[in-house]
Design a protein around this nucleic acid. Sequence first.
RNA 1: GCACCGGUAGCUCAGCUGGAUAGAGUACGUGACUACGAAUCACGUGGUCGGAGGUUCGACUCCUUCCCGGUGCACCA
Length: 576
Amino acid sequence: MLTNVRRATAEFLSTVISSHFSLASLTTEALEAALEVPKKLEHGHLAFPVFPLAKELKKAPPLIAKELAEVVTKAEHPLSKEIASVLPAGGFLNVTFKDAYLQKILIDSVYAEPGKVGYSKKGEGKTVVIDYSSPNVAKPMHIGHLRATVIGQAIRNLAETQGYNVIGLNHLGDWGVQFGKLAWAYMNWGSEYDFKGKPFESLYALYVRFHDEAEKDKDLDAKGSAVFRQLEQGDAQVTKIWKEFVEISMKEYGRMWGLLDVSHDLVRGESFYNNRLKAVEKELEDKKLLVESEGAMVVPLGEDMPPCLIRKTDGASLYATRDLASAEYRHNELKADLNLYVVGVDQTLHFKQVFRVLELMGHVWAKDCHHIAFGMYRFKEGKMSTRRGRTVFLEDVIRQAIEMVDKLIEAKNPNLENRKLVAEQVGIGAILFNDLAVDRVRDVEFDWEKALNFEGDSGPYVQYMHVRCLSLIRKYGKPAPKSIAIELTSPEERELVRTLLNYQDVLAAAFTTFRPNIVAQYMLELCAAFSRFYNKHRILGEAEDVQTSRMALVEATRRVLEAGLRTLNIQAPEAM
RNA sequence: GCACCGGUAGCUCAGCUGGAUAGAGUACGUGACUACGAAUCACGUGGUCGGAGGUUCGACUCCUUCCCGGUGCACCA
C-alpha cells in the first residue's frame, strides 16, 4: 500500500537531494521518516517538510522547496513517470502521484493475499503473549470487563496482522483468600441455594452474602482465611469445592466470550503458579534482592517507588509473587518476545513494580513487558461495586443492544433473513465499537444512550457501509473487476483511493502503540470517504469502463472494511 | 502529602513520531429518497485546545508551574 510508495519516494528524493545539495545527513531512512501524509489531498499524497534543511543550507525554507521541486521534476528516475506533480508550498515539497499508479497499487495490494489485506511481516518469527479478559472466579463479568476483553482481543488481532505468532492467555483469577471465604460460605450456607439449576448465580449470591455478613460478624474473615490455608495445603474436600467454583465460572465466562467471539489459546490461572513461587523467592534471595521489612519480605525499588511485597508476615505469597512467576513462565516456556498485560489503569503501580523487580533480577527482557492500561468506567450514580451487587452487567448491556437492534430491523427491514443473527452482530458491533473508538487510557462515562446509538459514528454505521458495498456487488451480478481500467479523477474517488491506501500504516501504528482506537477512527474516515463517493457518483448503469472501474473501487473498499471490522472483532453482516 | 493518567465545540470524543486554515458525531436549523439501502449525504450555528510562562522556523502535541477531575501509594487481587 502506501508504505511501499513512501519507501520508493524516499529513495528517489534522497538521491536527487544528495546530488544537488551537499548535505551531511539525509539518508533514505531519515527521509522516509520525515515524509508525511498530508491531511488534505490538495497538499499531495506525500509531503516533505524542508524546514530542517534551512540551517545547514542557510536558505529560507520556501526557497529550498522551490529549488527542490524544480530539480526533482527534471530528475530521471523509474518513479518519475508515476508522479503527476512535485510542487513547493511554503516550506513543504508536495508530491502528487498519478491516479492510475495509485489505483493499481491499491487493487494489487487488496488482492495480494486473500484475507490478509494490510498485513505486514514485521513480527515474523516472533511470539507475543497477551493476557486479556482475565476475570475473577465467582464474580460475574460487568461492563468493566468489556474493556479488558475487547481491547485485548483487538490487540491480539492486530498482532496477527503484523505477522506475530500470538498466544492469548487467560490469567484467570482463581486463587487467593477469597476462595477460602467462598468455600466457607458454601459449606455453611450452600444448601440454601440452587447450585444445580443456577450454579453461577448461586456462587455470586454466596459471594455477596459473605461480604455483607462479614461487615457485621468480624470473625468471618478469619474463618475464611483458615479455609484458604486448608486449600493451600491441598485439603481434598476444599480443593474439590474450589475446582467446582472454577468450573462453574469458566462455563459462565465461556458463554460471554462466545457472544463476543473472543478466544484464548491458553488458560493459566493464578493457581497454576503455586508450585513455582518457591523458586521465584529463592531466585530473589540468591540475587540478594530480598529484604526483611516489618516482618514481611520485600524487594526495595528505590526512591521513586514503594517496595514490592513478596511474602507476607504469615509466610503466604502475594499477587506480585505470582506475577513474577508468570512473567518468567511467559518468557522461558512460552518463548514470549513481547509480553502484554491488558489490565486496568488501577494496576499501573503494581506492574511498574513487577517489571522493575524483573530488571533487578537481571532479566533484560523486562523491557519487552508492557502493561496495556485502560481507563475505568464511571457512572453518574457513583462507583460500581461487585461486592455490593451494584453493577452494570456485561450481559445486560449486550442483551439490551441486541433487542434494540432487533426492533430497528423490524421497522426498517422486516423481511430480512437471519434476523436473529444479524441483530446479534449489529448489537454487539455497536457495543464493541463504542468502547474501541475511544483512547484506552481515558476513563469513560457509561452512557446507555450513547452505547446504544446506531447513528453517526458507530459500529452499525461502519457495518452499514459494508452492507451497501455488498448490495452494489450483488446488483452488479458478476464478480467485481480486479482492475481499474480508467483513471478515476473526481475528488471523491481520489480521496477514497488515498484513504484506502493508508490502511496498512494504520494497522502498524495501532499495534506499535497498542491502541485499537486508531483503527476504529480510521474506519469512520473510510466510511465517510466512501459515503461521499457513493452519494455523488452513480456506479451501476454508467458507461462500461466507468462502471467496472468504480465497481473495482467498491470491492476494494468492501475488503478493507471487512478486514478492519475483523481486526476490531466486529462482524460484517451481508445485510441488515 | 507523593506518584501516574486525563482536561479540545452545549454534550461524547478524534487529532499518528511537533507541521500547512484544530476535526467528527450528537444536539439545534435547512435541504436531498419515482436512481445503486435515508442506520445515509450536503449546508449552517457552535473553539481563549483548563490558566500562565518557556523551547522552536512552527506547539493541542515538548518543558516548567498552577488549577480541576480520576487512579494508586505494604501484607487483597
